[in-house]
């Protein structure tokens, strides 16, 4: 009969170890898929782009930003979901049109045009952009984002993710 001290570990330690290892494997088998479960929607990306008509370009007054709103149907989860957007279009003297996103480049609050100040103002942290979209004051790290734009048959159109 071998003595207890002849063994590397005793029965109790062995059982404890086996329970621990089996428990760890079971936890991992359930726990790791849960990470994928939670991040799943973040892995879906917009796959294409589409031209969206904003309105007639001739209504634009040179040098004065005009607000255009549009909505887009996007597949979100199990639903085609309406998402609303607002953009600012500004024409220069030659008739070339630039279209700005109204997302502040700081933390994505919505900027609005204030005619009396001649600037785009973000109300959240006092970000100020000029009519070219350049940062004049405040925390925004870069100019306002621009959309690719074109005028077709008098219609102003921009290219957005679909």
């Amino acid at each position: 009969m071998p003595k207890k001290s002849d063994y590397l570990i005793d029965r109790r330690q062995f059982v404890g170890g086996v329970v621990g290892i089996v428990g760890a494997i079971m936890s991992a088998a359930v726990g790791l898929p849960l990470v994928g479960y939670l991040v799943s929607p973040a892995l879906e990306k917009a796959e294409g782009q589409e031209w969206i008509p904003l309105g007639t370009a001739s209504a634009l007054e040179p040098g004065v930003p005009a607000l255009f709103t549009f909505s887009q149907l996007r597949q979100v989860g199990w639903k085609r979901t309406k998402i609303n957007y607002a953009v600012y279009a500004i024409a220069d003297d030659t008739g070339h049109v630039t279209v700005f996103s109204d997302d502040c480049t700081h933390l994505s609050c919505k900027v609005h045009w204030e005619p009396e100040r001649g600037a785009f103002i973000c109300p959240c942290h006092d970000g100020v952009f000029d009519r070219e979209g350049n940062v004049v004051a405040g925390p925004p790290p870069r100019p306002l984002d621009r959309f690719e734009a074109k005028v077709e048959d008098g219609q102003l159109m921009i290219l957005v993710e679909a």
Binding site: P33, G36, Y37, S40, L43, G77, W78, K79
Partner: peptide
């Protein structure tokens, strides 16, 4: 996290969990 308890969405949200969410079928 994904289930929506409304008559419009309940069934579809579960279909979404089963077919589209990673390991949703397992959970």
């Amino acid at each position: 996290v994904y289930y929506v308890p409304t008559p419009e969405d309940a069934y579809n949200s579960i279909e979404y969990i089963m077919n589209d969410v990673a390991f949703g079928w397992l959970v």
